[in-house]
Each structure stands twice: as C-alpha cells, then as structure tokens.
Design a protein around this nucleic acid. Structure first.
Lengths: 238, 238
DNA sequence: GAGTGGTCTAGACCACGTA
DNA sequence: ACGTGGTCTAGACCACTCA
C-alpha cells in the first residue's frame, strides 16, 4: 500500500499497459503521438514521454524518431529468440526447429502453481527440439493454459514460419513481456539423452522458465535442457 | 565513428565516468549536487539529471532524495554478492567463505586474452569455497592482474570481513561495474568433486565470468563451479 | 512541408533528510 | 530553515521519415 499516490508518469504508464493488455493497440501497431497521449491523459508531453521511456526500457514499446511509437512484437526479426540466451561458442546463433509433439493434458500440481491455475485444469503440452547445423542442442517442454491457447495443435505450429512467441502473439493475442529462469546442471535421463544424442548421465543445463504477459500474468511454463558442449548460456550482470 | 556528436547528457555522463575512474570521488562519497554539476559542465540541471539517471540505471551511482548522489559501493550491505545469482531453492541467500589459496602465477594464454594482458604477465590466483549451512556449494577460481592488486595475499583476504569485491574496492581502488558470464553444465573433476563433496562426474554449473571496472576495462577472470542440488541460478529476462 | 520523436532549457513546486 | 533530489510543466529547436 503506497503512502502517497504514484507519480503521474507512473499512473500513465499503468494506463498504457492496461490498454495494451486490453488489445487497444496490437503488437506492431503505432501508438498515438506524444501530443495526442498528453491530451488524452491531461498531462504535459514531458510527463507522457517519461512514461513511454519506461515502457521502452521494459521492451513493451519501441520508439523510432520521425516514425512514431510502436507496440513491441516478437514477429520483428530483431526479436526472434529474444529470451533464448544460448549461443554457440563461435558466435553463431541460428536454429532449426523440430516439433516432437503437441497434445492436451492436465496441469500437474507444480504446473498449476507456476501458471496460477487449479490442479488438473486443461493445458497444452508441447515438446520440441532446436538444432544447430543438424545437431540437437535444446530440448524444450512447454505447458500452456488451454484457455489462452485454444486451437493450438501440431499442424498450427508446423505451418508457422516464425518463433513460438511470434505465433502466440499473432494467433492467440498473447504477447510475452518478461520471463524468470532458474538454471541448474543435471544429468541427462535416458529419453532426453536419446533425443539430444548424448550418453545418459551426461551433464545438461536445465532451464526452468515462467513467461509473463502484460500485468505480470504467467502464461507459459517451459523446461529446457541445453546441451552445452559447443554452446553456452550468455548473461550480462549489471 | 558517430556522424553527429553525442548528445550533451551523454558527454556529461562520460565525463563523470572519467572522473570516477580517476578517483575524484571514491565509492561511498557524495557527488556534487545537480546544480553544482550543472555549473561545472555548463548545462542545465535537467541535462545533468539525465546523465545521473543513466548512471543510476548502470548502478554507478545511487541517488537518495533529500541526501544527495553517492558513488555506488560494494561495501554497502545491499550490494554484497551483487553479481552472485545463486540462491537456495528455499530462498536463503547467505554464505560463509573459506579461502583455499592465494598465490602469484603467470597468465595463461586464455587468461591473458580475457584480461587483455600479455601472456605470462604476473597474475594473482585465488581459490575459495562458498558454503551454505556448512555445505560447500561454490568453488571459485579467480585470476587478477597483479599490477592492479599488488599486495593481495591470503592474510589480507582472511582479515577482511566483507566480500571480495568490497575488498578490491576498499584496499585496491578497483570497483567492479559490470560482468559477463558464460554458463555451461560440466561433469565434476576429481579435485572439484572432493572440494564440493560430490562424486566425480556429477553435473555442476560452470560459470565463467569476466568483470569490468570503469571504462569497460576487464580486471578479473573468475571460474565458478556451482553445486545446484538444492540451489539454482536465478535470472530475469526482459 | 508536415508530423514524429530527441534534446535542452528554465522554472515552479513537492518530498525528504538533516540540523 | 535549508539543501537535496523528484515531479511536472511549457516551449524552443533539432533530426528523422514520409508523402
């Protein structure tokens, strides 16, 4: 409970986020100009600018001089694999994808907790591989609440040319804003070992991710196993 | 080569960083007020404020309303283990330390490249353990250019109550600003296994870090092995 | 040329910490 | 009471994009 009311730029920031969550502007769309937003929110353009600067830092919008302010989108080429920190030791960063399955399931207690669902609520379960130069390097398992991704199936995924997050955004209106990851070193189980073409027991980097959409609502649980023989997870600390 | 000159707030930011690097204000010290800096740099206070806001975002300074602007320091309690992302699964984040050795050595080709030294230049090599509830969870190996850390030895480290980065800052005037890490899953070798009390071959999280001081100058190479049985490496993606 | 965001200024007023 | 940073405003001018 804040003692004093939030500053005006913060209130405006929250109003814009609410409008984004409500779909008033879709990813890729232009927002109104600073001056128009200033009139709408009864504030000066400097205050609106401050709100938009915060949203830019959060990667919710992108501003381009002379063009306007646009809702950030995972469909932009510069945003593909935005949340995947795995890069080859030689710098290469492209992948090919191979879908293993996509099926309906029931949320386990753990999945339900992460996604703020009730246990046994319907979810969609996806398993896929990412390969670099025909070598599998990532085995991903995803769980998605079915109520946000109704109609998602293997055919839809296979037909889509971009990343999963671009697909979620374009077809289901779910834009991923941020994510939290927990990393561990684990020994490969027999099934993962076979799929990643390593021997069972070999060390793999386990990456548990919860991804959030507007308003900090969790909408994806993902468990990745990364083969870090010739790749590494790159991180910057500030 | 920038076509147009950098904006004034950026020039001022760089001048302040240069002053920090030159030691004009030491960690924990107060910087001059906005008004004083505005006069010094012949700019408006709004422009100086913008420069200081950027430095705040980079964690180079901290601003406190009513008090002033202060040079960030690793000796502040809230900054201890600022670059260590390992947390226990139950949330606990404290450690005890155990120094294993601290000795002079010569830079290997790899160390020299990371620290921008010549091969065989003198470095100081440190090995230590971090323990949680008497259980070892981190084995760290550090390499430091001797010319920045002359006089560092086991007695100095053992006598110091704070973190290594606080020690480096207080005793050697080297403030770590940011770091880059490369993470991998590896199998424990016999020596690491013994020190971390695991069986050889067990998966460990390998964390290679290069830490930088003001002006992006690399001053520490660190290789950590994390036992991620009851701990995980926490990361936020934006 | 019109419209957009980016920079820079000057100044008012508020909130906080110290004395 | 005073000095600090935090918020908010109004407006000038510049840089870029597109028709």
């Amino acid at each position: 409970m804040p003692k004093s009311p939030a500053p005006l730029y913060e209130q405006i920031r929250q109003l814009i986020v609410a409008a984004l969550a409500a779909g008033e502007w879709r990813p890729g769309d232009a927002l109104p100009s600073e001056a128009a937003l200033a009139e709408r929110f009864h504030a000066s353009s400097g205050t609106v600018r401050r709100a938009l600067d915060e949203l830019t830092a959060e990667h919710l919008v992108e501003r381009r001089q002379g063009r306007g302010t646009f809702v950030a989108t995972h469909t932009a080429p510069r945003n593909s694999y935005r949340f995947l920190r795995l890069v080859a030791d030689d710098g290469e960063s492209g992948f090919t994808r191979e879908l293993l399955h996509c099926r309906r399931a029931r949320a386990t207690a753990e999945t339900a907790r992460a996604l703020q669902l009730r246990t046994a609520e319907p979810v969609i379960e996806v398993r896929r591989l990412l390969l670099r130069r025909a070598e599998p390097v990532v085995l991903d398992d995803l769980w998605l609440p079915e109520r946000h991704f109704d109609g998602l199936n293997a055919a839809v995924i296979d037909a889509y040319p971009g990343t999963l997050y671009a697909l979620f955004e374009e077809r289901f209106g779910v834009h991923m804003v941020r994510a939290e990851e927990k990393l561990r070193a684990v020994a490969a189980g027999t099934d993962a070992a076979a799929l990643l073409r390593v021997t069972a027991g070999e060390p793999l980097l386990s990456v548990d991710r919860v991804a959030y959409t507007y308003g900090d609502r969790p909408v994806e649980l993902r468990r990745g196993l990364y083969h870090t023989q010739a790749d590494h997870y790159r991180n910057e600390l500030n």
